[in-house]
Structures are given as C-alpha cells and as structure tokens.
C-alpha cells in the first residue's frame, strides 16, 4: 500500500487522481451504498486510513471526485475562452480543447464516467448540490463569454440560445468520444457545429482562424 499524498490548494497528487479515477468503478461494482472507504482505498492502492484522512464520508469523496472531473475540463475551457477575444475563436478553442482532453482520457484507458456521478446525484442530496453548483458555474462561464461578445452577434436575443446550443454540443461530444468515435472525426463535427455560430454573427468567422491547424485534421 502506498501512502496517499495530501490534496492541497486544489492541487491533486497522482495518488489522489488515481483515487478519484478508481472510486467510480468501485461505486459501480460494489455499490454506492454498499462500498466502504476501505474498498475505494484498496482499489486505488492506498490504505483506507489514508482516504479517511481526507474524506470523512463517501459523499464527500464522490463530490470531490466529481469536482476533480469538472476542474480537469473547466480550467482548460476557462483559459481558452480568456485567450480568445472573439466569440468564434473562443468557442472553436473550447470545443477543440474539450475533444483533446476527452480523447486523451480515452487513450489513457481512463473511462469517462462523469454520467454515473450525475446518476448518483439523483440519489444523494449532498452530491446533487455539488453537481448543481458545478453545472451552473460551467453554464455561466459560457453565457458570460457570449454576453461579452454580444456586439459580434446579429441579434442580442440569440445569446442564451447559442450558449445552450454549445453546451448541448459539448455534452454530445463527450458521449461520442466515450463510445469510440475517432477523434479526428470529432474535430470535423466541432467545425460543423460552429457553422451555426457563423450564421448568427454579423461578420462571420474571423479570417485569421481559417485553415487553423486542428481544422486540417
């Protein structure tokens, strides 16, 4: 048994990552209600005591694991949106980054299990609250970007519907990648989905992005 490192200031050690990654498999195989923190520690290669040092209950661990799944994506997404001023480039970068992270997960043989956490949230109020917080945060990030760039749109009234459209596409991309759609095809899908945004912009796609590296995939 390896000792599990501390999780400090939101930075997660590789051991803690393994713990988060494995806990969902333990929940599925041994049951969310029936499994113990010892079972989860064992699956992740650390002692139950070590897990208990950081998490007093399964609920806490499940919520932390869900947050970890979320942060893994949202940090990149947030950075991409901040790096690109215009809405087209920002959404393109978000979609591409999302595909890249998801494909890396699949290639590293790490499952994409976030949906199980969502199902767990339907039977556990503590996890549900955490999930709702994360979901709202993610939605606001995308919505805020559209609001920032509203002058680029033909009609302000499209802000919300376009933001929700991209949230829908992102959810779909996750499922498609999870079930084995080749990643190069997912980039093409992302480009297709951006066509909607282009149609709702005053000046269409910014010229500088044409022929970008990912698009040629």
């Amino acid at each position: 048994m390896k000792p599990c490192d501390k999780i400090e200031a939101g930075n997660v050690s590789p051991e803690a990552e393994r713990l988060f990654d494995q806990c969902v498999k333990v929940f599925l195989l041994k049951g969310y209600e029936a499994c113990t923190l010892d079972d989860i520690g064992k699956a992740a290669g650390c002692s139950g005591d070590c897990v208990k040092e950081h998490f007093s209950s399964k609920q806490e661990l499940a919520a932390a694991a869900m947050r970890w799944y979320y942060i893994k994506y949202s940090r990149h997404m947030r950075t991409e949106m901040a790096m690109h001023q215009d809405i087209y480039s920002a959404m393109e970068a978000v979609l591409f980054a999302f595909i890249e992270i998801s494909c890396d997960q699949v290639h590293a043989n790490k499952g994409l299990f976030v949906r199980t956490f969502i199902d767990i949230s339907n039977v556990d109020d503590f996890v549900k609250e955490s999930f709702k917080e994360l979901q709202d945060d993610w939605e606001h990030q995308v919505l805020d970007k559209f609001k920032q760039c509203q002058l680029e749109l033909k009609d302000d009234a499209d802000i919300e519907v376009l933001a929700h459209y991209f949230l829908t596409v992102i959810e779909g991309l996750y499922e498609m990648i999870k079930y084995g759609t080749p990643c190069d095809l997912m980039y093409k899908v992302a480009i297709e989905s951006l066509g909607v945004l282009e149609l709702h912009m005053k000046n269409g796609q910014p010229k500088k992005k044409k022929g970008s590296k990912k698009k040629s995939k």
């Binding site: 929940f27 599925l28 195989l29 041994k30 049951g31 969310y32 209600e33 029936a34 499994c35 199980t116 199902d119 767990i120 039977v123």
Partner: peptide, 8 residues
C-alpha cells in the same frame, strides 16, 4: 446495481 453494486 448502483446502490448495492453490480458484483454484489
């Protein structure tokens, strides 16, 4: 399955 586990 979710609460008791698939194995059990």
């Amino acid at each position: 399955f979710m609460l008791q586990g698939f194995q059990h």
